[in-house]
Design a binder for these strands. Structure first.
Length: 161
DNA sequence: GCCAACGTTGGC
DNA sequence: GCCAACGTTGGC
């Protein structure tokens, strides 16, 4: 493999779609639809098969990184943008040149102990992580290799307690 | 429920 | 091109 895998983080409100929902989905796979932010969309378009994804529960108690998924299909048009009955319908999107994309991700694992936001905030190695930036709202964001490693280290440390 | 941070829209 | 108004996100 010439190019190494890249790392990402995706947010979901567990009441809308949780990591358990992903684990229960057919083939443990879902298409990540509904992204309607250009920056997040551009990150979706940069994703490649095999890239690893931190699954984050936003608006949860407490908000936490809860597990790992992986990209199994690269970006393709989001069907919901053309569906009038869908909450993510975008009347401005041209079917000949769709504005919004999805990727497919598959469940990899759920952490035995999830990593709450406040725990992550306490880690020196995670200073500068997009998720921890004040006011950060990006629902799809890149994660540095060093940040990924730090997260995995924390997961192991939690499991050993 | 509050509110800060952010993105988008539209008048000018 | 500016910026006020508005809607949304998401932690608390």
């Amino acid at each position: 493999m010439a190019q190494g895998r890249q790392y990402w983080l995706m947010k979901s409100e567990p009441e809308a779609f949780s990591i358990d929902d992903l684990a229960r989905a057919p083939k443990q796979t879902t298409s990540w639809d509904g992204v309607r932010n250009y920056q997040a969309r551009n990150f979706l378009r940069a994703m490649k098969v095999g890239d690893q994804v931190l699954f984050y529960h936003s608006n949860a108690n407490p908000p936490s990184v809860v597990g790992i998924a992986e990209v199994v299909k690269g970006a393709y048009p989001d069907a919901t943008q053309f569906n009038k009955r869908d909450t993510h319908y975008d009347p401005g999107s041209d079917p000949d040149q769709p504005c919004w994309d999805v990727v497919d991700i598959r469940f990899v694992r759920k952490f035995t102990a999830s990593l709450p936001l406040d725990l992550l905030r306490g880690q020196v190695g995670l200073k500068g992580m997009e998720l921890l930036r004040k006011g950060s709202r990006l629902s799809v964001q890149p994660v540095r290799g060093t940040e990924w490693d730090e997260i995995i280290r924390l997961v192991r440390a939690q499991a050993d307690r």
